[in-house]
Design a protein around this nucleic acid. Structure first.
Lengths: 203, 203
DNA sequence: GGTGTCACTGACGTCAGTGTCAGTACGCGA
DNA sequence: TCGCGTACTGACACTGACGTCAGTGACACC
């Protein structure tokens, strides 16, 4: 039998236990029993705080998205503002840092969450749609200001978003060096110049 | 009661029904009953062809990976060969075409499959690891030949792979125009020059 | 020390999905 | 027409995850 805690403490314990269970076993394989075992409470207690597994996952995602929202700031033009590219870099760096701070959530939200069940998908799809729009608008402004090359913005958005997601997931998984400076520099280099050097060297 | 079919026909029917069920309901929510209903056979028949749901998913992934393997060819240098960049472009285009031909599988393998259960994950992770190595080696050669800019290849691989995945998934979902030429051109433009135009225009 | 409140408990009934297997239907060769 | 093999069937027993709710214990206030 577990100690009496404040509502907020107990809720947090359950959230963290849920996060760990989801990361370890996968979203759909993790059970409510896993979660309560991790939190050290009885099965019934879970249902005092969340209506079901889906609800606790939504709470986790909401928390992460809120944290993400705090770190991403619109790029502002003006004589007193840092250069746009520096503002962009700061955004990238803050997102990379958040990802490295919350590896479990990154794996869940960026890699694991889709396709598990349609309800959960909706939440993430809506988020990604918002993110896509944000990037798309930024690119449109950038194109008007001739700071972004012309091209099909939907494809640009997809490559950028997909690339960022994969980098973060890989960093979190330890596949790539988890140094935010290195990662940020590489992302910026990719955005600035792609991968290939000079077409005339070919053939 | 269903008609008698050859083993191969029946197996294919089950595979296609499984693919449809997975795409429609999500990997973990789809049941063996959904699959057999789609194939128009009884529950028991399923188990004559596949040991369980995981096995039929593996078979689907294997088929897709084999098709992918056929379309991706190593880049060969030589006086009688097309320019490397053209060979790269051909690879990209063939992969884009395959994705557009098999939208269901693309959604499953590229977007939905991870995190469902650890067994299934292993299969895809192994595949991605192979793909990563392939791209990494190509980049290494490219760097030695000065056709690829210097930089942390692991990050380059992640951005490239993630970007490609997201583009294909978006194309399949109808978020971006499903014209293989447009998509291929945009991917090549990204690889060749990134997104940003000229640093000196900033600030 | 009685009483009410509140967080928590965990055994229980339920149910959806699983994998099985004895039985059925069909085609074919004797 | 009989017998045999093979593909297929679907009712069944089983499992494990779910959500509930009557009950327990601790604390506060009188």
């Amino acid at each position: 039998m577990s100690q009496r805690k404040t509502k907020a403490e107990r809720r947090r314990e359950l959230l963290m236990a849920a996060r760990d269970a989801f990361v370890e076993k996968g979203l759909s394989a993790a059970t409510v029993d896993d979660i309560v075992a991790g939190a050290g409470v009885a099965r019934g207690t879970f249902y005092l705080y969340f209506s079901d597994k889906r609800a606790v996952f939504e709470a986790l995602v909401d928390e992460f998205l809120a944290a993400l929202g705090v770190r991403v700031r619109s790029i502002v033009l003006g004589p007193d503002e840092p250069p746009p590219r520096a503002q962009l870099r700061d955004n990238v760096r803050r997102v990379v840092e958040l990802a490295l701070e919350e590896p479990g959530i990154v794996k869940l939200a960026l890699a694991d969450a889709t396709g598990v069940d349609p309800d959960l998908d909706d939440k993430l799809h809506a988020f990604y749609e918002g993110l896509r729009s944000l990037i798309d608008e930024s690119l449109e402004v950038g194109q008007q200001l001739k700071m972004v090359r012309p091209g099909d913005r939907r494809v640009m958005v997809a490559i950028g978003l997909g690339g960022l997601k994969e980098v973060l997931v890989d960093a979190v998984r330890g596949h790539i060096e988890a140094d935010p400076d290195v990662i940020t520099d590489e992302i910026m280099a990719f955005l600035a110049g792609g991968l290939l050097v000079d077409e005339r060297l070919d053939g």
